[in-house]
């Protein structure tokens, strides 16, 4: 299938060098979000990396961000590695098909990322937090739903999704805007993975 081509090209040195930068963007994005009291926003680098350089760069950036977080301030982060990895993969597929070019594509990217994040997080929440997400607003929804007789798994999903919907919206909007804010020449540096033959990069700055 066509999408498998996005995974087939071996990452070149440029793609490898991009990954630590995307990880750092995730960290800094999260720090800035905390300063603004604005959700979580720890996946901007993951999504940007995916759009620029493909699913492997996106996925690995997300995965390593969580692992490094666990070795530092957030020891629980590694339980959610799979979520971060999946977001990067979806962003990479979006980059391969150029979803960022149209409004329909951008909305598709956003919806898929929210779905993937919430669907993968919910079972982890169920095992770790008895279905809660740890976010007060979402947990309040959860409480209300369970008390009203809704099934726990659904309450858990709504709890998680209520956080993901705004968080990933800002993430995707910011990542896409930054992607377009990059010089054309820079974006095309990474486009080797979009072409099956793996042709290399264009000219350096004169």
């Amino acid at each position: 299938m066509g999408v498998l081509n996005a995974f087939r090209v071996r990452m070149n040195t440029l793609a490898i060098v991009l990954i630590p930068v995307c990880i750092a963007i995730n960290w800094a994005g999260h720090a800035l979000a905390q300063a603004l009291h604005l959700f979580f926003l720890d996946s901007v680098g993951t999504v940007l990396g995916g759009l620029l350089a493909g699913p492997w760069v996106g996925g690995i950036s997300g995965l390593l961000t969580n692992i490094i977080s666990s070795g530092s301030t957030d020891p629980i982060a590694w339980a959610y590695c799979g979520v971060a990895f999946a977001i990067g993969i979806v962003a990479g597929i979006g980059g391969y098909y150029g979803w960022y070019r149209t409004w329909a594509g951008r909305i598709t990217l956003y919806v898929l990322i929210v779905l993937v994040a919430s669907v993968i997080s919910t079972p982890i929440n169920i095992n770790l937090y008895a279905g809660q997400s740890g976010v007060p607003f979402g947990d309040a929804l959860y409480t209300g739903m369970v008390k009203s007789g809704w099934p726990t798994w659904l309450a858990a999903y709504i709890d998680e999704a209520s956080g993901d919907i705004p968080d990933k919206l800002i993430t995707v909007v910011v990542a896409t805007l930054i992607f377009f804010g990059l010089p054309n020449r820079y974006r095309s540096l990474f486009s080797v993975w979009r072409r099956p033959s793996g042709e290399p990069e264009p000219a350096p700055a004169s």
Binding site: V44, I170, V174
Partner: peptide, 11 residues
């Protein structure tokens, strides 16, 4: 405020 902070950072 998020984008004006993130854009220069990423660039």
């Amino acid at each position: 405020a998020y984008l004006p902070l993130m854009l220069p950072l990423v660039l």
